[in-house]
């Protein structure tokens, strides 16, 4: 980083002439390489291949290192994720999962990563977000309860999801959250984000994330959290909660506390799961690119050796035919 900055400073000092001369030099160099390749001038042609081999080899080293790092991060993330599952499973048992609940205000929370080079997990979440938003909109239109169309809001977590979703759903974005992974994810952190979500006064909040199944398998998942009112409605319609007897005088208040805690717990778990999926997906993506770089290197080596051998053969033929001509 400091190197690049130093270079920039130098450019700024020397002004435009240097930039021009630099670009001229690059053009010259590129022209030379092109001539060499097209004219099959031997020495330079092998030089170009040799440079290519070196860069492919370097890339292979980098992807291999990234794979190692992702693998070790995944190992610690797996344990944390499995621990965090214990906090949401009771909620699922008690309240059930009701992804088709309608409400006047629907909030969607796609959980994505901040960094790239991790396979297709972010695109998957964005694709599912678009599909879910459309399904909820269509479902509300089909139900035709005479109410206004539900309001759709997106709270995007992670830089990559923001970059993808702001292209076509810009107007629906209520807010973005990023850098949640910079320090270890904690429950207070999830709670702080959940409180921001509560400010949207949602009826239904749908959290979309990649559930970690195994190191090679991540499943896009929707977790639905209802507001206290929606929870009450769902219970009246015969939700799973009806089989419990609630003690105490403040049923609405208890439901309110429960809904808030459910949101934070679900968010915490989905952030954990997505982080784990990110690392495992990155691990397999980097493994693949290491393999591909290896294959490419093999092909280049073959080309390089073949060209070298061809030139040696040509030289030998020249020498032998010269010698034969002299002798004859």
């Amino acid at each position: 980083m400091s190197l690049r900055r130093a270079g920039l400073a130098l450019l700024r000092q020397q002004g435009a002439p240097l930039v021009e001369s630099l670009s001229a030099t690059t053009q010259q160099a590129q022209g030379a390489v092109r001539e060499a390749v097209e004219g099959c001038s031997r020495g330079v042609s092998t030089l170009a291949v040799k440079q290519r081999m070196k860069s492919v080899g370097n890339i292979q080293k980098i992807t291999k290192a990234m794979k190692m790092v992702a693998a070790s991060k995944m190992r610690s993330a797996t344990a944390a994720t499995e621990n965090s599952r214990g906090i949401v499973q009771p909620f699922l048992r008690m309240l059930g999962d009701m992804p088709d609940t309608q409400g006047a205000k629907a909030v969607f929370v796609p959980v994505t990563s901040d960094k790239g080079l991790c396979g297709g997990i972010n695109s998957t979440v964005c694709k599912y977000t678009r599909a879910t938003v459309k399904a909820v909109r269509d479902g509300a239109a089909a139900a035709d309860s005479g109410e206004a169309a539900p309001e759709m809001m997106l709270v995007v977590m992670g830089e990559k999801g923001r970059a993808q979703l702001q292209r076509d759903m810009r107007d629906n974005i209520y807010g973005t959250v990023a850098d949640t992974n910079k320090v270890k994810i904690t429950f207070p952190e999830a709670s702080a984000i959940a409180e921001e979500l509560l400010k949207t006064e949602y009826d239904t909040a749908r959290i979309l994330y990649n559930r970690f199944v195994s190191a090679i398998n991540q499943k896009p998942t929707i977790a639905t959290v209802l507001s206290p009112d929606a929870l009450e409605r769902a219970a009246a319609e015969g939700g799973a909660m009806d089989s419990y007897e609630l003690e105490g005088p403040d049923r609405p208040e208890m439901l309110m506390d429960l809904a808030e805690f459910q949101l934070a717990a679900t968010l915490y778990n989905s952030m954990m799961e997505n982080n784990c999926s990110e690392q495992s997906s990155r691990m397999s993506a980097m493994e693949n690119s290491t393999k591909n770089a290896g294959e490419m290197l093999g092909k280049l080596t073959l080309t390089y050796n073949r060209t070298r051998q061809a030139s040696i053969t040509t030289e030998l033929i020249e020498i032998i035919s010269g010698a034969t001509a002299l002798a004859g």
Binding site: G175, V177, K184, E189, A192
Partner: peptide
Amino acid sequence: KAREIIYFRQALWKDGQPQKQVITDTT
């Protein structure tokens, strides 16, 4: 103590444009 630190940044959007970025940091 490590379990109570919070770090994230957020921005609210208005009319399809991000507004001011807020960093929550208790580290």
